[in-house]
Each structure stands twice: as C-alpha cells, then as structure tokens.
C-alpha cells in the first residue's frame, strides 16, 4: 500500500517580465510517498527551484494544484548556502525555527540537543558558525530544519557550495541522517551521481518549460549509503541512461 503524502497535479507556472511571459513549469505531475527519497534532475535554470518554492508555499502555481495528505504540512527547506546566522551560536541557529513559530518548548530544545549529540555537533553547540567546516555547517543547517519535525524535506542543490571531496562525505552524512530520522525528502540537483546514489526515485526534467520527461525507480543491487551505492554495478547504467535523457549539447 502506498502512503501518499504529497501530490502535484498538473501544475504550471508562468512568469511575467517586462520583456514578456516565460513558462517555467508546464503540466508537471509528481507523487511523493512517505519515507521516500526523491531526486529531481535537470539542466540548470530549468525551473527546479521554482517547483520547490511552490511546494514550500513561497510561490503559487499559475494553474494546477498541490495536495498534501496532512492538513497543515510542515515543510523543511534547505538551500545550497547553509544560511547559518553568523551572529548566533550553533545551538541558537538550530533554535531559530522554533522561536519563529513560537514552539520553543523544553521538549523541542531537548530534541535539538539530542540531534546535535547524535550527529557529533554537541561540543560545538556554543561556538559560532565561522568555527565550523563547510560540511559541519551543512549538517547544522539540516538539524535546524529537522528541529521542526517537518513532514517533507526540500533540498535545493544543498551541496553546491562544497568542494568535491566534502560533497561526497556530506551527502553521505546528510543521507544517513535523513534515513535515520525517517524523513521524506525531495532533492533538486544537477549532479547525476548524487541523484542516482541517493534517491529511490528520479524525475528527469526537461529544459524550459520544465516538465517531467521520465521517471526512474532506482533499483540497485544492494542499497547502502550513497558512497557505497556509487560502486554498485547498476549505478553506471542509470547514470548513462539519465545522461542521455538530459540531452545536453555543449
């Protein structure tokens, strides 16, 4: 039985500029099940971020609709920049969402402290973000997002600001945390390796106007963490296939 938590029905998005009208998204359909890790891949500037903004409620579609099973779904949003506030300590940074939503209860504080402990950041809780490496900052950003116990997690190219080595390590970390906390996640990325190694389902998006071109269920021989998944025999098959779908002409 599928446990559907989000359904995107035929949404389109048009932008208006002085120079004219731009169709960013055209008739897009996506279904997300609970606990699923979904990747949206597409060339840059194809409207992936717009889609996430619409899911997050920061933007509204021109037509079509989005339905959540949950009445008031909580959405966690992570960006490529960690967006940590340099004037707040790590712990205060994690608290920001709770403070804004006036949920700064002892119980929730406890929850954050536990997350920090679990993911080896507890000893840094009173330090400022500048003392942390890029990967650690991204982990803090994830904990800040998890603090609100979101129903669905949106990751907008979350590892873009990192160098290649950290990128592999951090995506591994983040993936493990997301799985351990049993989160539903949608990641937007242009990095095929990242998508294939992390996601269970990949939506390949076309160039502008953005629409779903193909959907892949990723069935690897053995599914472990992203770094090991990259060594899977099927990894390269999916990689090649999606590469062809993207139809990138340089």
């Amino acid at each position: 039985m599928k446990n559907n938590i989000l359904k995107i029905n035929h949404i389109s998005k048009k932008y208006h500029t002085i120079d004219g009208e731009i169709t960013a998204i055209k008739d897009m359909n996506i279904e997300v099940n609970k606990g699923e890790f979904i990747a949206l891949v597409g060339t840059s500037g194809c409207g992936k971020s717009t889609l996430l903004n619409i899911i997050a409620g920061l933007d509204s579609p021109t037509s079509g609709n989005i339905t959540f099973t949950e009445k008031n779904p909580k959405i966690g949003y992570m960006f490529q920049s960690d967006c940590l506030f340099p004037w707040l300590t790590i712990y205060e940074n994690c608290l920001i969402g709770l403070k804004i939503q006036k949920k700064n209860t002892l119980e929730n504080q406890e929850y954050i402290l536990n997350l920090l402990k679990k993911y080896n950041l507890y000893e840094f809780k009173d330090k400022y973000p500048k003392c942390l490496s890029g990967g650690m900052k991204q982990r803090v950003a994830l904990i800040r997002t998890l603090a609100l116990k979101p129903d669905i997690l949106l990751l907008d190219e979350p590892f873009n600001a990192l160098d290649y080595q950290s990128r592999l390590a951090v995506s591994n970390d983040v993936y493990n945390i997301i799985k351990k906390e049993n989160q539903t996640a949608i990641i937007v990325t242009h990095d095929l390796g990242e998508a294939v190694s992390m996601a269970e389902k990949i939506y390949v998006l076309s160039k502008r106007p953005c629409t779903v071109k193909k959907v892949y269920e990723i069935n690897l021989e053995t599914r472990k963490d992203p770094i090991s998944n990259r060594k899977d025999t099927k990894f390269i098959e999916y990689y090649d296939q999606i590469w062809k779908d993207l139809d990138i002409n340089v």
Partner: peptide, 25 residues
C-alpha cells in the same frame, strides 16, 4: 542575503520577524 530571507519565509516568519531576526542583524 536573499537566501536567509527565503529561509525565514519558509519557516513562515512574518515581516517583523524577518526584519528583527535577519535584516537588522
């Protein structure tokens, strides 16, 4: 930083919160 504002918006912050929590600091 527009991302920081976007972050607060995604957390459903109101205008005053955006001003006092990000813009002024």
């Amino acid at each position: 930083d527009s991302y920081k504002i976007k972050l607060l918006k995604s957390l459903k912050a109101n205008k005053l919160q955006i001003l006092t929590k990000v813009v002024i600091p």
